[in-house]
Simulated scan of single mutants.
Amino acid sequence: MDKASRIYVAGHRGLVGSAICRALACAGYKNLLTRTHAELDLCDQAAVRAFFAQYKPDIVVLAAAKVGGIHANATYPAEFIYQNLQIQNNVIDCACRNACKKLLFLGSSCIYPKMCPQPIKEEYLLTGPLEPTNDAYALAKIAGIKMCQAYRRQYGFDAISAMPTNLYGPGDNYHPENSHVIPALIRRFHEAKMAGAEKVTIWGSGNALREFLYVDDMAEACVFLLENYSDFEHVNVGCGSDISILEAARLIAGIVGFAGTIDTDPTKPDGTPRKLLDCSKIFSMGWKPRVRLEEGLRDAYNDFLQNQHNRGY
Rank of each mutant, 00 (worst) to 15 (best):
D2G: 08
A4L: 13
I7C: 10
A10S: 14
G11H: 06
G14T: 08
G17L: 14
S18T: 07
I20M: 07
L24R: 01
L24D: 03
L24H: 02
G28Y: 05
Y29A: 03
Y29I: 08
K30E: 11
L33S: 09
T36W: 08
H37E: 12
L42H: 00
L42W: 00
L42D: 01
C43T: 07
D44W: 12
Q45F: 00
A47M: 12
A47P: 09
V48L: 12
R49P: 01
A50E: 07
F51D: 02
F52A: 04
F52N: 00
A53L: 13
Q54W: 08
Y55L: 14
Y55E: 15
K56P: 01
K56M: 09
I59Q: 02
A65Q: 02
A72C: 11
Q83K: 10
Q83R: 10
Q83Y: 07
L85M: 15
Q88C: 13
N89C: 12
N90A: 13
N90V: 08
D93A: 13
D93M: 12
A95R: 06
A95N: 11
C100Q: 04
C100D: 01
C110G: 02
C110P: 00
P113M: 03
K114E: 05
I120C: 01
Y124S: 01
L125P: 02
T127F: 08
P129M: 10
P129A: 10
L130D: 02
L130T: 00
E131H: 04
P132M: 10
T133P: 02
A136E: 00
K141S: 03
I142S: 05
A143P: 09
K146I: 10
Q149K: 15
Q149V: 14
Q154L: 15
Q154F: 12
D158F: 06
A159H: 05
I160D: 02
S161G: 14
M163Y: 09
N166C: 14
L167A: 01
Y168D: 03
G169I: 04
P170M: 14
G171W: 04
G171D: 12
D172C: 14
N173M: 04
V181F: 14
V181W: 05
P183K: 10
R187K: 11
R188W: 06
R188N: 11
H190I: 06
A192K: 03
V200T: 07
V200K: 03
T201H: 13
I202H: 06
W203S: 01
L209R: 13
R210D: 09
Y214V: 13
Y214L: 14
Y214F: 15
Y214K: 08
V215Q: 03
E220T: 11
V223K: 07
V223W: 06
L226V: 06
N228D: 10
Y229D: 01
D231I: 03
V237A: 14
G238L: 08
C239R: 02
I243R: 00
I245R: 05
L246G: 06
E247W: 01
A249T: 13
L251R: 09
L251K: 10
I252G: 04
A253M: 10
D265S: 12
P266F: 11
P269W: 03
P273Q: 09
C279R: 04
F283Y: 09
F283R: 08
S284V: 10
M285D: 06
G286H: 07
P289C: 15
P289T: 15
G296F: 05
G296C: 13
L297F: 10
A300L: 06
F304C: 07
F304V: 07
